[in-house]
């Protein structure tokens, strides 16, 4: 296609948008709403994922050693754990350390009497705190640790992370459906708007067809119109999401949890918005022109 024509289609499409102003505004608004909700879900998913990662990083598995192990065996077990794939770091926690920790905690509450008589009969066991590189490996790592000679048992810390992961999966699925439904609705509204545009230009289309215009030549300006509407919806949605997110980020981040900064999702959002907006516009207008091409 010659640039000559592309310029013609763009100009005519833009002209349609402004000629068909009221309907264009309606279409831009619904597209904006769809994309805004898409943006909310994207931001939510990204944050939940980032929390899950954060928790994975902090989450440690505690590995307890058999009571009758010698200090050499204790060290050797540590060496073996370190060699397992998926293990990031290990930290030695002797039963004496744990006893001291508990003691300090109890002393703070004035309840250290509970421990009287236990100094020489330490109820705790030697252990390792193991942190993982990747939470999805938890089970495999746990299994391997369990099979090491001299390991008594291990605690299972990954439950919270697992829950957050499944929440994030659910949000993803749910938002996908919402987006599909809203996308269909906006495509429908755009298609109605384009229908009006096509109707108001039916004479012109008729003349074009007599002169020998191909169907695609007739279609393109309307497709451009739909895509321009989708594009405007995308820009507005991006601006509004930016503003809203920035507000929430400012007020929430400092308090208890760290939100993903907007800059980390800006490209994803604008990319997704523009693509989804333009696709919605394209499909919407394609539907509406079909029957007006018969002459």
């Amino acid at each position: 296609m010659r640039t000559n024509r592309i310029r013609y289609f763009l100009r005519e499409g833009m002209k349609n948008v402004s000629r068909n102003r009221l309907m264009s505004v309606a279409s831009v608004t619904t597209t904006f709403a769809t994309l805004f909700i898409l943006g909310v879900f994207l931001a939510l998913t990204m944050n939940v994922n980032s929390w899950a990662e954060q928790i994975a990083r902090d989450c440690q598995v505690q590995v307890f050693i058999n009571e009758d192990s010698t200090p050499e065996q204790y060290d050797a077990i540590g060496q073996q754990i370190q060699n397992i794939q998926g293990v990031a770091t290990i930290e030695k926690c002797t039963k004496e350390q744990i006893f001291e920790e508990v003691k300090t905690k109890l002393e703070a509450k004035g309840e250290e009497s509970i421990l009287v008589g236990l100094e020489n009969d330490n109820p705790y066991r030697d252990s390792y705190k193991v942190s993982l590189t990747d939470l999805t490996l938890t089970e495999a790592v746990a299994e391997q640790i369990q099979s090491i000679q001299g390991v008594a048992n291990i605690t299972d810390f990954q439950e919270t992370a697992g829950i957050i992961y499944s929440i994030s999966e659910n949000i993803k699925n749910f938002s996908l459906w919402i987006i599909v439904i809203l996308g269909v609705i906006s495509a429908f509204i755009i298609s109605n708007s384009i229908k009006i545009s096509v109707f108001s230009r039916r004479k012109e289309i008729h003349i074009m067809k007599y002169i020998g215009a191909t169907n695609w030549f007739v279609r393109w300006p309307f497709l451009v119109e739909g895509m321009v509407v989708g594009f405007y919806g995308a820009l507005i949605a991006f601006g509004v999401i930016w503003l809203v997110y920035w507000r929430i980020y400012e007020s929430v981040s400092v308090q208890f949890l760290q939100l993903v900064p907007f800059s980390a999702m800006a490209w994803l959002l604008i990319g997704a918005f523009i693509i989804v907006g333009i696709v919605i516009g394209f499909i919407g207008s394609l539907i509406s022109i079909r029957k007006h091409l018969k002459v």
């Binding site: 010659r2 000559n4 024509r5 013609y8 004479k203 012109e204 008729h206 003349i207 074009m208 007599y210 002169i211 020998g212 215009a213 030549f217």
Partner: peptide
Amino acid sequence: VVFQDFRLLPDKTVYENIEFAMIVVGAPR
């Protein structure tokens, strides 16, 4: 083809109405 009712595009000038027919068939500027 020409018709009894002319069928010109009211928002285009004489020149543009004629040019329209050439754009439709892809005639270069």
